[in-house]
Design a protein around this nucleic acid. Structure first.
Lengths: 336, 336
DNA sequence: AAGAGAATCTTAAACGTTTTCGGAGGTGCT
DNA sequence: AGCACCTCCGAAAACGTTTAAGATTCTCTT
């Protein structure tokens, strides 16, 4: 490994001058800087991040907490997209990204300890069991933190506009003549509460009355649960003409359940999803869904995190809401 | 931040003793070790990975190169699964994982430079444009490297058994009466060549003759391309009764193309996928496909990489083949 | 009683940087 | 000539660890 010391010796300048030349400091002449850079490049010099981090207490590394109860973290399509764009934007901003785990060497440690150990400049929290006290601890550890798709009071949050999203979906199916609209929602998180709020407000505004039994709690990303709930909904004396699912994957479960009941989408029942993952647009019938802007969510997360880091302690937690867009597909039939 | 020095002062022992106590060295008595550990824990001491890495030249960090031409890296379901299990196993083995990019600070650098800068102990190469010279350079940089789902001559490779996988699929559809079997394969990589080999050998063994025009080159993970090729195949004077797709996503494209032609799966045409991603088993009809053991592939990658790191220079590149399993679904009809 | 050897602890150097501070030399002004 | 003021560069300390080698004490052994 060629170090700065070797470059110094080779170029005839001191270690200090080499360091400054390489970092573009102002108190080294243009010619020497050029010369030193040439020598460094010739020798194949690469700086050492560990030494740099040790001295500067900045790692230029973001930690990402990204796993959930079902351990499907990375394979969760929606979050994968967010992570992808978060990664890209972070790199543009000069940060690498690493995963935070609850292990360190052999031992198991808290997320906070792990993040401190690795000197992460900032942390992104996504797709986790938010009620986990270890996550809470991390969120209020003092390390700059941004949470995505979840609303924390202790740190910045990037949310998609769940209220408006549901309003758009309801309006859309309403405009196609649907009045008996059921809503299978996910676990009762802040995000889910927003969705329910949006659903109810829009129904109220449109003057349609939704019976209690049309709003049922399911689980995100569970085709099985949504399949079962779909059966229950269709077994009601007065079944819905349209079902809103908590996400696109849940829709798949509902679709299959309907097929097995001899009902087809959208001929017999209409359905809509949520998220707008790629898959939803290549299946037949193409799914009517609300596309969340994962690109923007990931980008903004990176930007806010970088800002938090660079502004240091002066950063004030804030919530940023990203609008989504309705994707009209083929799963809602015009009726009435 | 509480350092080892503070723990030393507080406990009354020297910095060296504290370090050794914390790392379980043999030349510190059991009582002092216990005492020191108690003090450290009381003070909330967390070691500093940068200082440690600087001194030991070991970062306990694996770099992961994970992006492809279409930039779909993380959102690629098959690779997501591999990464997921690679991550889990790496963490068990005491390594954290970070992404390698071609940026560093503001500047853009080679993957190798990036890996050196961050002192990664080892590198996993997955889902990249393998012909990229920068990837080649990394593979032969001297840093321990394992490639997954690709065969390099310069480093260890974890492959799934593509030859046997295709043989199994061919046998399966053959046993259900199919003789006119078409194969849309992906870009001509080593993996693809294996698949073609498996396909041809098994056909030969079973004594069925496949016309040239039944074997066509498509693209991995492109519903559009596979849809178009499906149309072409079905337009042949003597169309196939069964189509093998390069992956499950490509099957979706084929399925849709067939539907639009008024043909249904499996009534009119049979079809099979490859990979066995979750999606393939929740759609209707359930896809007949070959499930690659992503769990094992990720795990073995981590284990081989750790081994390479720990054995140092003595490591000999080797290729490990992981068997897959046939998932019989509902997309192949018994005929003849 | 003296020396050997084990057990336990400390001293100090080193890892590769960044950064403060000061020094040397040059320029321009009075 | 004397002074102030730049510009450019280097010496040295510091970041938080690990570790080789030495120091000290204790226990045996003879």
């Amino acid at each position: 490994m060629v170090t700065i010391k070797m470059v110094a010796k080779q170029s005839g300048y001191s270690v200090a001058t080499v360091s400054k030349a390489l970092n573009g400091a102002s108190d080294v002449s243009a010619e020497t800087a050029a010369l030193i850079r040439a020598v460094a490049s010739d020798m194949g010099y690469t700086p050492n991040s560990a030494a740099r981090a040790l001295k500067t207490t900045r790692s230029y590394n973001f930690g990402v907490l990204f796993e959930d109860a079902t351990n499907s973290g990375l394979t969760h399509e929606f979050f994968s997209y967010i992570l992808q764009s978060f990664k890209r934007r972070s790199e543009e901003l000069g940060y690498d990204i690493s995963f935070i785990s609850n292990r360190l060497g052999g031992r198991s440690v808290s997320y906070t300890e792990h993040a401190r150990y690795r000197n992460y400049d900032g942390v992104l929290i996504a797709s986790v069991e938010f009620r986990d006290p270890a996550v809470l601890e991390l969120a209020s550890s003092g390390i700059p933190v941004v949470a995505v798709d979840y609303s924390f009071h202790r740190c910045g949050s990037i949310l998609s506009d769940n209220i408006q999203g549901m309003r758009d979906l309801v309006s859309h199916v309403y405009s196609l003549g649907h009045r008996r609209i059921a809503f299978i929602h996910g676990e009762l998180t802040a995000v889910t509460r927003d969705r329910i709020t949006g659903f109810q407000r829009q129904c109220l505004e449109l003057g349609i009355d939704i019976p209690k039994e049309y709003i049922v709690e399911g689980r995100y990303h569970s085709p099985d649960v949504s399949g079962e709930l779909t059966r229950q909904l269709m077994a009601l004396p007065n079944p819905p003409t349209c079902i809103l699912y908590p996400d696109d994957i849940s829709y798949i479960g509902g679709f299959n359940a309907l097929e097995r009941m001899g009902l087809s989408v959208p001929a017999d029942v209409s359905a809509v999803g949520y998220d707008g993952v790629n898959l939803s647009q290549v299946i037949t019938p193409r799914l009517t869904t609300l596309r969340q802007d994962t690109e923007a969510m990931g980008e903004r997360s990176a930007e806010e995190l970088a800002r938090a880091v660079e502004e240091g302690i002066s950063y004030v937690p804030q919530t940023i809401v990203i609008p989504g867009t309705l994707l009209p597909g083929e799963t809602v039939k015009r009726i009435g």
